[in-house]
Write a protein that binds this DNA or RNA. Structure first.
Lengths: 190, 190
DNA sequence: ATTCGACATGTAGTTTTGTACACGTCATAG
DNA sequence: CTATGACGTGTACAAAACTACATGTCGAAT
């Protein structure tokens, strides 16, 4: 359901085509809310049917630029203030960490190092983006300020994860060598 | 696809029924990988058909306790070492933050305060859990040590988010009152 | 005795998300 | 002039995930 509001929110800033929006999802949003073009085009159609957005102009290759309607703007605002935040996250990386005990300590060490590097690099990317915004490269429209906040969250989140992955590497592996598997002589070995 | 491995990983630790697993997802995993019972029962069926798990024993109310097979154990391990980590996250809270500029500054202040409180409380919950583990309340099996690492990630993640929400409250709202809406005189107002 | 709540598993139907396929346009570099 | 790559929109199909419904058992308290 959130894609609907994501689209509405983006269109509240400025009109855009399905293609434009797809680019934004790929380049800027994939870290917090991934979406592929078939879903985007589909949702734009529904939004238009519902009168929350409307075709603003048509361009060259069948390009259709959508603009938000007053009803659509009211609807995003309603969402922002009235709908409770869904706090469920889906983090495969953390799910995996539950099962680290099944890994060979050496493999785990490598894994954690590459995870740390990944998160650190992601944080650096966000940081750069933030610096550009702070330099004023993108102007100082309200929507730019909001994005700066989102980026700040990204920086903090990925730094936290990087710190965690580094900390995890310092946790000593099981002392008596890398023993077998699921709880010694378990049901799996029958 | 990850649910499959989540189940396999949990069963690698100890045999369990669909009901048991559902409880674990509700109580411990909903923050990092939510799953409801229909999905779990369905996946258990497929896993059993594939020979990765097997019914270990049957209990009172049609209860079926599954245990992982050697093939299943090999499969989780393969996943852990060979499959690349999917780093995409889906965080509605951050998606919303992109659109904060559409909110009334007062509503936003309230929102951020409640977000901060939520994250702080979540972090505290994880911290408590971690303390219990460190006290040895859950023994010191390898799987418990892994879970301790996951919890550590939870603590760091939610503290980071709480810090962010507090920081965001200090960012000054647009100076010249709370003006209109989408970029002055925008397309939406036509 | 009976009722209530936890235990326990499943199906049906829908929504959401993703992959693959399919088609056509415009600009530009060779 | 023609091939390539970015532009641009869409459909078909499959997989994943959620809601609601359906059914029945067992233990404990009233």
């Amino acid at each position: 359901m959130s894609l609907r509001y994501a689209l509405l929110g983006l269109l509240a800033d400025s009109p855009a085509s399905g293609y434009d929006l797809t680019q934004r999802f790929e380049k800027q949003l994939q870290m917090i809310w991934p979406a592929k073009h078939p879903q985007i085009y589909g949702e734009l159609g529904k939004l238009a049917d519902a009168g929350l957005i409307a075709v603003d102009s048509e361009g060259p290759r069948g390009r259709k630029v959508y603009a938000i309607t007053p009803e659509g703007l009211a609807e995003v605002r309603r969402w922002l203030t009235e709908e409770p935040v869904d706090h469920t996250a889906r983090l495969e990386a953390l799910l995996r960490s539950l099962f680290y005990w099944l890994m060979d300590p050496e493999d785990l060490g490598e894994h954690l190092a590459s995870e740390a590097a990944f998160y650190r690099a992601a944080a650096a990317g966000f940081r750069e983006y933030a610096a550009a915004k702070d330099r004023g490269d993108y102007g100082d429209a309200p929507s730019v300020k909001s994005m700066r906040m989102t980026i700040e969250a990204g920086i903090r989140l990925y730094e936290a994860l990087a710190d965690w992955a580094e900390w995890a590497q310092t946790v000593p592996p099981p002392g008596p060598a890398a023993e077998g598997a699921a709880s010694e002589g378990s049901e799996a070995e029958r």
